[in-house]
């Protein structure tokens, strides 16, 4: 459902930091924001992200792009889940699973930072 493809332009020696995974019990308190090292653009509903610290770039599909667009540091995971359910014809549980999976992946790749409110 959520597709992310990654390609490396330059296999950097960037240190991989330790990023904790999303805590399912705290979804109403977790907010996500893009890492300052990420430059992105959305075209034709898909998002291309470049991680300037590693030289890797990524493409997010439509669902991934909507999730990314709402990771502004303002919305909680619960807020973003509500947006997905509203915008896509998808079962609530499935949407939540996809959201948490993608958020985990983006946090682990260092593209998103998570904060607890």
């Amino acid at each position: 459902m959520v597709e992310i493809s990654a390609t490396t332009i330059l296999s950097g020696a960037a240190e991989s930091s330790i990023h904790g995974s999303i805590d399912w019990t705290q979804l109403d308190r977790i907010v996500l924001r893009p890492s300052p090292d990420v430059q992105g653009t959305t075209m034709d509903g898909e998002t291309v992200l470049l991680d300037l610290s590693s030289g890797r770039y990524y493409t997010l599909n439509r669902l991934g792009s909507v999730i990314w667009e709402h990771c502004t540091g303002q919305n909680t995971m619960v807020d973003i889940h509500a947006v997905i359910c509203d915008r896509f014809d998808v079962a609530s549980e499935r949407a939540l699973g996809d959201l948490v999976d993608l958020a985990n992946e983006l946090v682990q790749e260092g593209l998103l930072q998570q904060e607890r409110r």
């Binding site: 898909e46 291309v48 470049l50």
Partner: peptide
Amino acid sequence: PKSRALEALL
């Protein structure tokens, strides 16, 4: 699609 084109251009 433009996103694919950018991906191919990078």
